[in-house]
Each structure stands twice: as C-alpha cells, then as structure tokens.
Design a protein around this nucleic acid. Structure first.
Ligand SMILES: [Mn+2]
Ligand SMILES: [Mn+2]
Ligand SMILES: [Zn+2]
Ligand SMILES: [Zn+2]
Lengths: 138, 138
DNA sequence: AACATCAGTGCAACAGAAGTGCATTTAGTG
DNA sequence: CACTAAATGCACTTCTGTTGCACTGATGTT
C-alpha cells in the first residue's frame, strides 16, 4: 500500500483510483486548486465525481475549502498538523492578482479580533490580495 | 434638491429616479444587501439596471462590494469618511450564520500582516463568521 | 462461487448569479 | 424643439455549483 493510500485510509476515505489521482494532483501543486483545474488536468474526468470527491475529502479533513474572493471555490490539502475540521487552523490565504494563483500561508494565523458586544465569532477568513513572490521577481 | 441627490452628484452620479430609490433602500438598511435583495424589494425593478447601478455606485465610490464567503456579492454604502476607492478603508465584515445578514464593522480595521519575502499586499478581506448581536440575544 | 449490499461513478439536467449585446427610452444641452 | 449621450429594459449566454437517478464495482456473507 502506498503512502497516499495510507493517508486516505487514515481519514476513513476509501482509496479508489480516482481519489488517489486527485490527491496526487493536489499534492503536486503548491497552490490551491479549483474544481475546473482538476477537470482540465484529467480530461477524462467527470465533473460530478471530482465535485463529490472534493466534498468527501473536505468532510474527512483531507482538504480545506478556500474562499479567495474570486467567487470560485479553491481547495488545498491540509498540512499534517492541520486542525481545519474544528476551525482551529485559521491561517490566512494569499491571492495573486497577476497569476491568479491562491496559496496557503500556513504559518500565518489570523490574529484575534475583538468584536462589538453581542457578536460571537465562530470562524474567520482572511485573504490578502496582491502580487505573489514568483510574480514580484519579474 | 434633496440630500441624496446632492450625495450622488458629488460623486458624479446622475441622480435618476431609480438610483435615488436604490440609494434610499440601501441607506434604510443597516446590513449589506445583495442584488437579489434589491430586486425583491422593488418587484418592478429590472435586474440589469440594478446590476449596472451597483457597478456605477461602486466605481464612483458610493458603495463598496463585500465578499462575505456566501458566494453572493453584497454591497453597502460607504461611510462619509470612507476611502474604499483607494483601498485604504480596510474594515472587516461580519456574517451571521443564523440570520444570514452581513454587516460592516466600520470601526474595526484589518490589522497589518507581515507577509513572507516577495509577497506584496495590495488589498485585504477579513470576514468573521458567527452569531450577530441580534441573534445572540435570543 | 453466488448473492446481497452499499459506496462510488457517470450522465443528464437544473439553479442561481453574473455578465453582455442591442434596441429603446429618458434626460441634459443648445 | 432637435440633437446627443446616458440610462434603462429585454433577451440571451456563460459559468459554477448542485442534485437525481441509474449503473458499476468492490466488499463481505453464506
Ligand atoms: Mn489554506
Ligand atoms: Mn463594509
Ligand atoms: Zn502571482
Ligand atoms: Zn444574525
């Protein structure tokens, strides 16, 4: 059994051929991916399957969904020590307006915010938009 | 000339009947509104007109667009001293998971974030999700 | 091995929001 | 009033996300 198969099984996700392919694809990229990205990467793939695979991955804590402000849902693999399931890993995300790539800044946590009386925070999303390191070098 | 007409003209927006209605509607609500909200408020209104009106309002700095993570664009009137046009008024937004309302927390600015080497920040979006003051009282 | 069972997949269709092209109306200007 | 440009209305398209249902393939049991 490969490393990836073990990873999936550890999270109670049956390691089917398609799922392994998708996981491998996401692991190979250092940016968040959209459903369409995966669809284009494997032109044999069925949209619905990818959609439901990502849902499953998310529910089981293998990936987390990212709203980067483009109105297109992105997904990224959770890091080994990630606590996305319980909303405890509130790292921020960066979206590059030049190359349109979105990355996790896993080390950068969202600072605590004091809210007005009566407001109860349960989750937070912080996206910084600008120019990424690759694009700013050129 | 009414106060609203003056406000529109100050921002080089011709105060047509429809625009005044929309502005009034937004001023009457203390939450951000979606295109559909306005559409439902005036059942005589044409989607495209509302859409383009909001675009115009945004370009001229009368309103700012809000991405609250629901994948539905919301809009809110800019406060008198708001500098949205030049991305200088980075206040945060709160989205209530109970009543689904989104509000501007104009007094709460997004804290400055130190980014990794090479990343250039130009804009930021911070949304806190949870229970709003109205909902937490009941 | 045959069977029952259920998760996973493929296909089709739908929903909602966003956006565009073009004709028509409306409002400002001389 | 006549002219012009902006604003509006209508139709249509695109894109993402989502669901229903039938089929397939793996798993586990007798
Ligand atoms: Mn992330
Ligand atoms: Mn706001
Ligand atoms: Zn970039
Ligand atoms: Zn609420």
């Amino acid at each position: 059994m490969t490393e990836i198969e073990k990873t999936l099984q550890n999270k109670s996700v049956r390691p089917t051929a398609m799922r392994i392919l998708i996981y491998k694809y996401m692991a190979s990229k250092n940016t968040a991916v959209a459903l369409t990205d995966i669809e284009n990467a494997f032109d044999k793939a069925e949209r619905t399957t990818l959609y439901r695979t990502l849902k499953t991955f998310e529910e089981k804590g293998l990936v987390h969904q990212i709203d980067d402000g483009t109105n297109i849902s992105k997904f990224a693999l959770c890091e080994p020590g990630c606590n996305c399931e319980i909303d405890q890993d509130l790292h921020l995300h960066f979206h590059c307006g030049n190359c349109d790539k979105t990355v996790c800044l896993t080390e950068h946590k969202i600072p605590h915010i004091n809210l007005p009386q009566g407001y109860v925070a349960e989750d937070a999303n912080l996206v910084i938009k600008g120019i990424c390191d690759s694009c700013s070098q050129h």
